[in-house]
Simulated scan of single mutants.
Amino acid sequence: MPSSNRVLVVEDDLEIRESIMEILEDHGYEPLGAENGLEALDRLREPEPPPCLILLDLMLPRMDGKTFRQELLRHPGLANIPVVVISAFRDARKLIEDMQVSGLLQKPFKVHELVDVTRRYCLSRSSP
């Protein structure tokens, strides 16, 4: 069973990132935001407990989602954090085939889809 309620949201679109984080917070999670892969790696190096889930956009400035995932897989302490890609690409399934991710949320997704996938990997403060 997951031991954390922290979710790292790696999304360059500020509105989308803030919306996702607000939804997660409303459902008892502790969201952390990052605008790109480099910022996300910095967040993961902080001494806080690691997130139970990373929600990862593919198209990011400075370090894209695919490169970020490759970097994660090189670090044993980070490689096991579940990653769910969030993408508007119609062929996103094909793009993520070799990324060793836990899933895909196709943009635009519904609130319940986001909450359901997060529940799969994380505890919520509002969980019994």
Rank of each mutant, 00 (worst) to 15 (best):
H27K: 08
R93C: 00
I96G: 01
E71C: 13
I16A: 11
P50Q: 14
M59P: 02
L60C: 05
A40H: 06
E97V: 12
P50K: 15
L60I: 06
A92G: 09
R43E: 13
I81E: 10
I54T: 05
M59G: 06
V9C: 07
K107M: 12
S19K: 10
E18T: 11
P61Y: 05
R17K: 09
L104R: 04
D26C: 05
M21K: 09
R62D: 14
P61S: 05
L73T: 06
V83F: 00
L104W: 04
I23A: 08
V111Y: 03
E113N: 07
M99S: 07
E18S: 06
P47S: 15
V83K: 01
H112D: 11
F109V: 03
M59E: 08
E46K: 12
L53W: 08
V10F: 02
V9F: 02
A92H: 08
E39K: 13
V10E: 00
E18P: 01
A40F: 09
M59A: 02
M99T: 07
L38K: 09
M99I: 08
L78H: 08
L95G: 00
A40P: 07
L32A: 09
P61D: 06
G77I: 05
R45G: 14
E30H: 12
D12L: 05
N80T: 15
E18Y: 10
E18M: 13
P49C: 03
L56F: 02
G65K: 01
E11H: 00
I81T: 15
P47I: 10
L32Y: 09
M59I: 13
L114P: 03
N36V: 04
K107G: 13
M99R: 04
F89K: 10
A88Q: 01
K107C: 10
H75I: 15
H112M: 08
D64K: 05
V101M: 01
E15S: 14
P47F: 03
C52E: 08
V9S: 03
K66L: 03
L32S: 10
P51Q: 12
L95Y: 11
L53T: 10
I86L: 06
K94D: 15
Q70R: 13
Y29C: 00
D98N: 12
S19P: 02
I23W: 14
L73K: 11
V84A: 00
D57F: 03
I54Q: 04
